[in-house]
């Protein structure tokens, strides 16, 4: 009855990673059969104090999804690091900051302004959430928002990485199979720091679309194209596709159905900064020589930082806008 303990935690994220694990169908049953699920707030009721009470390193593996956005996130990262033998950054948020990380292009003040007083918000009294509020019922607290979104490995040491937004259920199954095999002595743990559940190349490797030499003369958004060719490379059709610079493993899901890759599997192996790779690749194939003409093509990319770093901003070399970073203590 001494099954190894398993945990999964949801920090600043959408919850898609949790669903993706459940989406592995009967693999969840295998998980349950091989592990003692000790802590998984989304799936079962275990109190925080119970985790605190656990012995250090008593959890064999924790799948940590979500970025570090709040003090609570940070606290839980530290706590779970202490309680886990193997800490896995699970999904794009934990690995690279993902969509929440895009907030790093703005200061907290700008974010609050946009969220609570923006054009789509009805808030005439300009109310803002407070971290401490004295209500008739007593003192209410809300965990404070940190200046910038961080990735799990910027807060605590991480053992393995499983990329994707969310990780593909097929790939999660591979990872779970590996863990189970390790538990049963049928496999050895990969070297620390390894990326699990992904390919070694980029999305184009799996994309079935035909491709040719690239010469960009115009970049469009998908709705601006009169029609889309179903068999040729989307980039060649003038769509900003992140596939060339995004790690493979998703079976090129998006391009398969005519949507350009948005880059959720992160950088290819050995790449320091995914956004820079996209930037250099796209700029290199702009088929113009005069600055004005180059600019005309680049005007088709109204939000370059948001496009190139859609998933990887928090983990990039610069990580955040200067003003937002400046607030970091």
């Amino acid at each position: 009855m001494s099954k190894p303990k398993f945990a999964m935690y949801w920090a600043s994220a959408c919850g898609g990673c949790e669903i993706a694990v459940l989406n592995t169908d009967e693999k969840v049953l295998e998980l349950d059969a091989n592990f003692d699920v000790a802590f998984w707030p989304a799936a079962m009721d275990v109190k925080y104090q119970e985790v605190e009470a656990m012995e250090d390193a008593s959890l064999l593996v924790t799948l940590f999804n979500g970025a570090i956005r709040t003090d609570e996130n940070e606290h839980m990262a530290h706590l779970l690091r202490r309680k886990s033998k193997i800490l896995v950054a699970f999904g794009s948020c934990a690995n690279e900051g993902c969509i929440p990380g895009l907030a790093n292009l703005s200061t907290r003040e700008d974010l609050f302004e946009r969220a609570y007083s923006g054009p789509s918000t009805e808030n005439p009294e300009h109310l803002r959430p407070q971290t401490i509020w004295r209500a008739p019922e007593g003192v209410l607290t809300l965990t404070p928002l940190q200046p910038v979104v961080r990735t799990l490995d910027q807060v605590v040491e991480v053992d393995y990485h499983v990329p994707g937004c969310p990780p593909e259920s097929r790939q999660i199954a591979v990872v779970l199979d590996l863990l189970i095999a390790v538990v049963n002595g049928a496999a050895e743990l990969p070297p620390k720091g390894a990326v699990l559940g992904a390919g070694e190349s980029t999305v184009c490797d799996e994309c079935p679309r035909s491709r040719d030499v690239k010469r960009l003369t115009k970049l469009s958004r998908i709705q601006e194209l009169p029609s889309l060719d179903t068999t040729t490379c989307l980039l060649e059709q003038g769509l900003m596709c992140s596939g060339p610079a995004t790690r493979s493993g998703c079976d090129s899901r998006c391009p398969n159905v005519g949507a350009p890759c948005i880059g959720c599997y992160g950088a290819a192996p050995g790449v320091l900064d995914q956004g820079a790779r996209l930037m250099t690749a796209i700029a290199s194939v702009v088929d113009e020589k005069e600055p004005e003409a180059i600019d005309r093509v680049l005007d088709g990319l109204p939000d370059p930082a948001g496009t190139f770093y859609r998933f990887s901003l928090a983990h990039s070399l610069l990580r955040a806008n200067r003003a937002a970073l400046a607030e970091t203590p």
Binding site: S201, C204, D205, D212, C233, P244, S284
Partner: peptide, 26 residues
């Protein structure tokens, strides 16, 4: 080769035509 996805972004960049695309291995 293991890392090359055959995206062909590099193919038009070489003025010496040193880069070619191998169809069979993509």
């Amino acid at each position: 080769e293991e890392q090359c996805s055959g995206c062909r972004l590099c193919n038009g960049l070489c003025p010496y035509n040193a880069i070619s695309f191998v169809e069979e291995r993509r």
